[in-house]
Design a protein around this nucleic acid. Structure first.
Lengths: 148, 148
DNA sequence: GTGGGTGCAAAGGGTTTGCAGCAAG
DNA sequence: CTTGCTGCAAACCCTTTGCACCCAC
């Protein structure tokens, strides 16, 4: 998978190429499911770049504004999650027990959306879909616990 | 549409039938789209029942715990929204401009869910779907503004 | 009467902001 | 050099909590 250079991304959006933005963009590129600002802050400590919590938030807000990242409010606790804005459209299957999130490739809603568009005269821009359940591991664990 | 008596609901869930809970349950019954705790508090002032903000939150949390209500984190701002837990399953079409929410009746995901269940061995419990776009009114308004 | 529920005020936790200093263009 | 970006600390906002009082059962 080819990854566009950070520098290119920043200049395309007319924002400065700073160390902090590079660190955060790299973190977002290297995660496969949405993460919290806190998690990003923690991971940024592994780099040798100075990083402040408010900087994390400011950069994330900038990224969201520039459509570099997406802010989702998926989690059951009330923290926001951030992920890279991939052109490819995907959804998550979320385990209610361990909170693990698994990306689902195919999206079944294209036809449905155009149908709604016809019926409601809305101009549909996109959608957010989460599917909730319990993952095989948690189901198994639960069965063991209940044996006791 | 028949509405189950508040008193019945409370006793079924083993919680006390208080004035405040009645007010909030009535508000939830009379709204057709999810609302914030703040909005509930404001509307509660119309009644002659004393109501405190923390009471609103406490009652909402109780309702969610008892499955009387559902907490959703749909809105673009980070406030939580609450709605009555209808047995019937529904989704919302949300206008990105005026934030109006329109309930969508039919859900296209049942077959899709069982397919995922087969493929991933997850035990699927449910899902959350929001469709985003611009409503006819906002599209019209926008066109007028752009004429200037 | 008793325990659950409420009011009040204060704390919590995530996120934002004002300001001074710094560093990318 | 200049403007935008960052660090720091304090503020903000939504939500929760501790405690004393009260009311539904």
């Amino acid at each position: 998978m080819r990854r566009i250079d950070n520098k290119e991304i920043f200049s395309k959006h007319g924002i400065k190429n700073t160390k902090q933005r590079n660190v955060i963009l790299d973190i977002l590129k290297n995660t496969d499911s949405p993460i919290t600002a806190e998690e990003i802050f923690i991971r940024s400590q592994d780099s040798n770049v100075n990083m402040n919590f408010s900087t994390v938030y400011r950069i994330l807000n900038t990224f969201v504004l520039k459509d570099i990242a997406i802010k989702t409010s998926i989690g059951e606790d009330d923290k926001n999650l951030y992920e890279l804005n991939m052109e490819e459209h995907s959804h998550y299957l979320i385990c209610l027990s361990c909170k693990k999130m698994i990306k689902i490739g195919h999206c079944p809603l294209e036809e449905y959306e155009s149908q709604i568009q016809r019926n409601t005269k809305f101009r549909i821009i996109g959608h957010k879909l989460e599917i909730h359940g319990y993952c095989p591991e948690c189901i198994e664990e639960d069965m063991h616990e209940n044996k006791n």
